[in-house]
Amino acid sequence: MNAIEFILSGMLAAATPFLLAALGELVAERSGVLNLGVEGTMAFGAALGFIVVYNGGGHVLGFVAASLGGVLLSLLFAFVTLGLRANQVATGLAIGILGLGLSAFYGKPYESFTVSGIGKIAVPGLSDIPVVGGLFAQDIVVWLALGTTVVLWYVLAHTKLGLLLRAVGENPKAANSIGYPVVLIRLGAVAFGGAMAGIAGAYASTIYTPLWADGMIAGRGWIAVALVVFGTWMVGRVFWGACLFGAVSLGGIAAQTAGLSVPSQLLTSLPYLVTIIVLGVISSNRTLLKINGVPSLGEPFEK
C-alpha cells in the first residue's frame, strides 16, 4: 500500500472526530454562542464511551452515553452563559478544563486498556477500484457522519429551522422582536453541539483508536473550533477542512513510515500550522466573513 492509498483510505475516518465536533460547534456558533469547551466535552464523551464499551455495553450504548455526557456539560455551560449571562469565552474554557478533569478521573482505572473496534462497510464495486477504492470502505459511523453533513447542510440552507438559527445569530434582538424565543433556540443549539462533541470523542476512543489513554483527544477539539472559523460557518467548507486535517495528520504518519528524517513532533504540529495559515488567509476576505459570519457571536442576549 503506497502513501497515497494509505491516506485516501484512512482520511475520512481520521476526519470524522473533527467533522462531528465541528458540525456541532457550527450549529452553536450559528446561533451566536461561542462554546470553547469542545476539547473537554470530547474528552468526557471519549471516557464515557470507552467505559461503556469496555464493560460490555456495546458501541450503540457507548455512543448514547457519550452524547448524553456531552449534553450534560453543554447544559451546564448554557446555564451559566445563557441563564446567568456570564462571559462565554471564560465559561467555555472552564467547562473544557472540567471535562478534561472528569475524563482523567473516570478513565484512570482504564488506562491503556483496549476494546475492539467495528468492521467496515464497503460499497460493492466502488471499493474495488484501485488507489481510490479505500475511500469507499468505511465504518458505519463515518457513513453516518457523511449523512449528517448533508442533512445539516440542507437544514441550514433550506428549512425554516435553519433560517431561524441564522436569524438568531445575526440579530437576536430582531428575532426576539418578531416573537422568537432567542434563549431557547440557543439552548437547543448548544445542546446539539455538546451531543456532537461527545459522539466525536467516543468515536475517537472506541473506534478510531480503540484504547484509553489520558489526553488522547490531543487538541482535536481545538482543531474543530478552528475548523468552524476556517469554514466561515459553512457546512461544505467545514467538511473539506476536516478532510484536509484528516489527510494532513495521516500524511505525518505516512512520512514516518516512509523513513523521512523529519522529527515526529514537527509532523504532528503540521495540522496546527495549516490552521494558522488558513485562518490568516480566510480573515483577509472580509466579504465572505461579513456574509457568513455571526455578528452576535459570543455576546450575551439582553432584551
Partner: peptide
C-alpha cells in the same frame, strides 16, 4: 415597524418574511 429595522441582513427578503 421599528425605527432601527428588525431585518436580517444576510437573508433574502422572502426568507425574512418566511420567519414571520
Amino acid at each position: 415597524v421599528f425605527q432601527h429595522f428588525s431585518l436580517f441582513e444576510t437573508l433574502t427578503v422572502v426568507e425574512n418574511v418566511s420567519l414571520v
